[in-house]
Simulated scan of single mutants.
Amino acid sequence: MTGAGREGSTGLRHGWTTGACATAATTAAYTALLTGEFPDPVRIDLPHDRHPAFALARESLADGAATAGVVKDAGDDPDVTHGALVSARVTHGEPGSGVAFRAGEGVGTVTKPGLPLAVGEPAINPVPRQLVREHVAAVAARHGGTGDVVVELSVEGGAELALKTWNPRLGILGGLSILGTTGVVVPYSCASWIDSIRRGIDVARAAGHAHVAGCTGSTSERTVAELYGLPEDALLDMGDFAGAVLKYLRRHPVPRLTVAGGIGKLAKLADGHLDLHSARSQVSPDALAAMVRGAGGAPELVAGVLGANTALDALRQCQAAGLPLGDLVAAGARSTALGVLDGAPVEVDVVVVDRGGTVVGRAGHQRTLAAE
C-alpha cells in the first residue's frame, strides 16, 4: 500500500479508513468483473487530492462474482481495525438499480433509529457509500459497464472487533461499521470516538430518552446506571471528551444530563478543561486548594491539599477533615458544563465517584431527585 504520509506536527504516519479500504476493494472487484483482471495495486481518489494505491490481499473471480480484499493500515493510530481484511464482493445488479449495498460477514446492521442510516440497512456510512458509488461509476465508464451492481462488504473478524466499539450500544449488530469522511485516519485524533459520542446522543434522542449520562469510565457508568436506572443506550462513553458531549448537546439538547467520573477527571472539568486526557490537561493543586480555602478549610488542610500527590489524595485528606471536596468539585464541574451548554435547555447534575464506585460528591441533583 502506498500514499500514507506523516502528520506534520507529530511525525506520526497516517492510515486509511475502512471506507477507503472498502472503496479500493470494490474498485478492484468491479474492474475484474468487467475485464477479467484485477488491478493490483488498485488506486482510488480521495478528498483533498489524495490518490492512495492499495495492494490486494485477496482476489477471486467465478460464477459472475468478483471479490477483492485489502488489509487495513491505520498508520500509527491505535485503531481496533488495524490489520483487518476488508473485502468487497461485486455482482451485476438489475438494470437501473445503481449500487446496492449488502452487509457481509463482520459488517453490522442498523437496528435502532437515530443514525444516518435507516433501520435494517448495512452499517456502511453515507460518505463511504458515496465514494463507492463514484468509483463504480468511474470503472463503468472506463470499461463499458452499466454501474448497476450489488456490493457486499465484509470485514474478517468484524463481529468480534465490534464488541470493542460503540456499535452494540448504538444498535449496530453483527459487526463493524464502514466509516470515514476523508478516507484518512489521523493518528490519535480520536475522531471516531467523538463521532460515536454524537451518534450515541442521536440514538438516545431518537429513542425518546429524556435523561442521558456522560461517563468517564466503566466504574462511573455502572454507578450512574444503578443510581438512576438508565438503559444502556442512554449511557454515553464520554471518556476524556467532555467537550464533545457538551458541545453536541448544546446543538441537540436532551432534557437532562448527568456527568459522572472520578475526582481527578472531574477536577479538571471544574478547572475549565474540556479534554480530560492526562497528556492534554492536568489536575491543579492550586485550584483544589482554593476550593478548600473558600469552603473554610483550616490552613493546614489547605496546605495538605496543595501538596497532595493526586486529586484522590486531596479527597481523602478532606474526607478525614469532614470537608466535602467531592461536592465542591462536582459543583465546579457543573458550572463548567453549564457554561459550555450556554443556555441550552439541559438540566445538569454531576456525580463524583471513587475507584470502587462509591459516590463521593454530587451537585445539581436536589431538584431532580425531588422529581423522581
Rank of each mutant, 00 (worst) to 15 (best):
V292E: 00
S284A: 11
A295S: 11
Q282L: 11
L269Q: 00
A337N: 10
V305M: 01
Q317N: 02
G332F: 05
D313M: 10
L288S: 03
A270F: 06
G294L: 04
V329Q: 05
A311F: 04
S281F: 04
V346Q: 13
L306E: 02
S278E: 03
V340Y: 11
L288V: 05
L312G: 14
G326R: 01
R334Q: 15
L341S: 13
V302N: 00
K268Y: 00
G339T: 07
P345A: 14
R280S: 12
V302W: 07
A311T: 09
D286M: 13
A330R: 02
Q317M: 15
L312I: 03
C318E: 09
A314M: 04
A287C: 00
V329D: 06
A270V: 04
D327Q: 10
G304P: 09
G297L: 01
D313C: 11
D327M: 07
G343A: 14
R293Q: 15
L323A: 09
G326K: 07
L274G: 13
G322W: 04
V340H: 11
V346T: 15
R280Y: 12
R316Q: 13
A333Y: 04
A320M: 11
A337K: 05
L328P: 00
T310Q: 12
A330H: 08
R316W: 07
L323I: 08
